[in-house]
């Protein structure tokens, strides 16, 4: 019986810092308590606070100046939502007229019953208090794609799935990365040329699934699930490879968006899907992808 198993020695552990660029200009990095600039004339944003007439940093990161708004973004943190963001979220609790969902934020997010598109408007006709009815559509553990509609006063996010492209997610794999690694783009839903679809949630939750055929789109409002359908082996290979490539990008601290995923996928073709779990393969893909992205930028 053959088995693939490998034990590496810590002596041979890959040093991920070797991927750091040798750039001539190193950006200025700030740490908590460090003074950014005097307060006069500027507004303070995320990651900053005012003390003794100075704007100081409260996190470790790189400074961001947008007009007069100064903020510092840490490279790693829980998801801080903004209106219009696309997220992939998991239902953690069914409550009266709403669901509590986990979006990797500092507070649970809320999906109101009124923010959900239901087939035939069924639920709206009945008494909306019926928890059983709610569970039929979204139960604890279910995954959804949604958009951030609003932010409550205390900071929790209000999501909505009223557009047909959002809704309950069916068969596929969820991959979690740091939110800061997901580039903010116009498009978050991608049907990749390699043969699978991804949803890049701003909250760092990435959903990989088989590309749906045209005839399956719409109609059900995004809540239909065909659990009997057996995803074919060829699709599984693409999905597994994508999963491993995205995790490789995350491990190498590279930004995750459609182009970088595509490059990483192409670089990964040299290896078998399961070989992509090894640190040497991950490093190799990271390095190659980094090189291609830098060339593309120039």
């Amino acid at each position: 019986m053959s088995t693939n198993a490998a034990i590496d020695l810590a002596l041979d552990r890959v040093d991920w810092r070797d991927l750091a660029a040798q750039t001539e200009e190193q950006p200025r990095v700030y740490t908590p308590g460090e003074v950014l600039m005097p307060e006069a004339g500027f507004m303070r944003g995320h990651g900053t606070f005012v003390e003794d007439e100075n704007i100081k940093s409260s996190v470790a990161g790189v400074i961001q100046k947008v007009n007069k708004l100064i903020s510092v973004r840490p490279l790693k943190s829980r998801y801080v939502g903004e209106i219009g963001d696309v997220v992939v979220a998991r239902v953690s609790e069914v409550q009266q007229k709403r669901w509590r969902v986990d979006t990797n934020s500092r507070l649970d997010s809320i999906l109101l019953l009124s923010s959900v598109n239901l087939p035939g408007g069924e639920l709206r006709r009945r008494s909306a208090e019926d928890e059983q009815m709610m569970r039929r559509y979204l139960d604890e553990g279910d995954l959804i794609s949604a958009e951030v509609q609003n932010i409550f006063e205390e900071g929790s996010l209000s999501l909505y799935t009223r557009s047909l492209k959002y809704g309950k997610l069916s068969q596929g794999i969820l991959v979690k990365v740091f939110p800061a690694l997901v580039k903010r783009r116009k498009m978050h839903f991608h049907n990749l040329p390699c043969g699978a679809s991804v949803i890049l949630g701003n909250n760092g939750y990435i959903w990989i699934s088989p590309t749906k055929g045209q005839e399956e789109e719409g109609g059900e409002g995004g809540f239909a699930q065909n659990l009997n359908e057996h995803v074919p082996r060829a699709d599984r290979e693409v999905i597994a490879r994508l999963r491993n490539s995205i995790l490789a990008l995350a491990k190498c601290k590279l930004m995750i968006y459609d182009t970088s995923i595509q490059y990483a996928y192409e670089e990964s073709l040299r290896y078998e899907a399961h070989e992509l779990l090894q640190q040497n393969a991950i490093y190799d893909i990271g390095q190659q992808t980094q090189g291609r992205l830098r060339d593309a930028d120039e």
């Binding site: 693939n4 020695l9 057996h230 290979e237 779990l277």
Partner: peptide
């Protein structure tokens, strides 16, 4: 369901077969 079918096909979510181990590191 996706995981279950993958196990049937001997191709798990990360591309491993039913008999493969994930990479290990020892010191």
């Amino acid at each position: 369901t996706y995981i279950l079918h993958g196990v049937e096909d001997d191709f798990r979510c990360d591309g491993r077969s039913r008999r493969d181990y994930r990479p290990m590191d020892l010191e």
